[in-house]
Computed example of a mutant assay.
Amino acid sequence: MSSSASPTRQVNGVQLPSAGTWKVDPGHAEVGFVGRHFMLTKVRGRFTGVEASVEIGERPEESRVTAVIDMASVDSGDKTRDDHLRSGDFFDVEKHPKASFASTSVTWQGSKGKMTGDLTIKGVTRPVTLDVDYLGYARDPWNNDRAVFSAHGKVNREDWGLTWNMALETGGILVSKEIELTLEIETIREG
């Protein structure tokens, strides 16, 4: 809980959330990804099972994020594809039901920042850097204080052992190695 009663504060002339714990609202959180099929078509998916919290530091650079993702909650809009993503070819959810993220550093300027953290998928941990935007504050009809964030970045899925693919007769591969990560997150102030 923040030492301040106000849910926001001014930092270098920019309104930011007050220091304290802000829990991610899973009903208003999207952890998404975009890959390419045939190296052409964008295929979008998301994870609906996400538990996360944001510790906003007195100085924005002292902030931390932790998250756990239910890998079986993957939803790309196609049951056959989702079942394949859950299989041993990709996420292997029977052996590795959860993925996790823990931030290791944050840099901040105005309402934008960069967050680096350790992403663990299938027991493999690699660093990831995300560009983060603080979009603003709102009080909901039930008197909860909400801070809203957006983040994005790119990863090579093969860094986590997600190497399944097929060569195409015309050259190239079926599924892109580079995956875009997109996050749209509403947090609720604890306390």
Rank of each mutant, 00 (worst) to 15 (best):
V93R: 10
G77T: 11
Q10A: 08
S100A: 11
T163Q: 09
R36F: 09
K154L: 04
E55Q: 14
A67R: 07
S111D: 15
F47E: 07
V155T: 11
Y137G: 01
T48C: 03
L181G: 11
E186M: 01
V148K: 13
S73V: 09
T182Y: 02
E55P: 10
R64D: 02
V54G: 01
T21F: 02
W22L: 02
N12Y: 01
R139C: 03
W164G: 00
F33D: 10
E94P: 11
S63R: 03
G20R: 11
I179A: 02
A147S: 10
G110F: 08
H84P: 10
S105K: 14
D70M: 02
R146N: 07
L85K: 06
S103V: 07
D83K: 12
F38A: 00
K98P: 09
K98R: 15
K23M: 00
P26V: 02
V148I: 15
T125Q: 05
W160M: 04
A99F: 06
R86G: 04
D92P: 13
G161S: 09
I179Q: 05
T182W: 00
V50G: 05
L130W: 02
D118R: 11
L183K: 10
V43M: 03
F47W: 10
M39V: 07
L130C: 04
S176G: 06
E190V: 06
L40D: 12
D92R: 07
T41H: 11
T170V: 05
I69M: 06
K154G: 07
G32W: 08
V11M: 02
S4G: 08
L85N: 05
E61R: 11
N165E: 02
A19G: 13
S176T: 14
P97C: 04
L162P: 11
V34K: 15
N144E: 08
V11W: 08
F38P: 03
V93K: 07
K177I: 04
V148C: 12
T116A: 01
K98Q: 15
A99W: 04
R46Y: 01
V68T: 15
H37E: 06
K23C: 00
F38C: 00
T66G: 02
M166Q: 15
K98V: 07
K95A: 10
R59K: 14
A67Q: 08
S6G: 03
V155N: 09
G191W: 03
R44H: 14
N165T: 09
L119W: 12
W22R: 09
Q15A: 07
S18N: 08
W22T: 09
W142R: 14
I188D: 03
G13R: 12
D92Q: 09
T80A: 11
G161W: 10
G20S: 08
T66Q: 09
G57M: 03
I173N: 05
V11P: 06
V74R: 03
E58S: 06
M39E: 15
V43G: 00
V132I: 13
A151V: 13
S176P: 11
E55W: 03
N143R: 09
R46D: 02
G161T: 13
S4Y: 00
S73M: 05
F91W: 10
D140I: 00
T163I: 10
E51F: 00
E190C: 01
T48Y: 00
H37W: 04
L130Y: 05
E186Y: 00
P60L: 00
A151G: 12
D89I: 04
N144C: 01
N156D: 15
A67E: 03
R59L: 04
V24W: 04
G153K: 12
T48G: 04
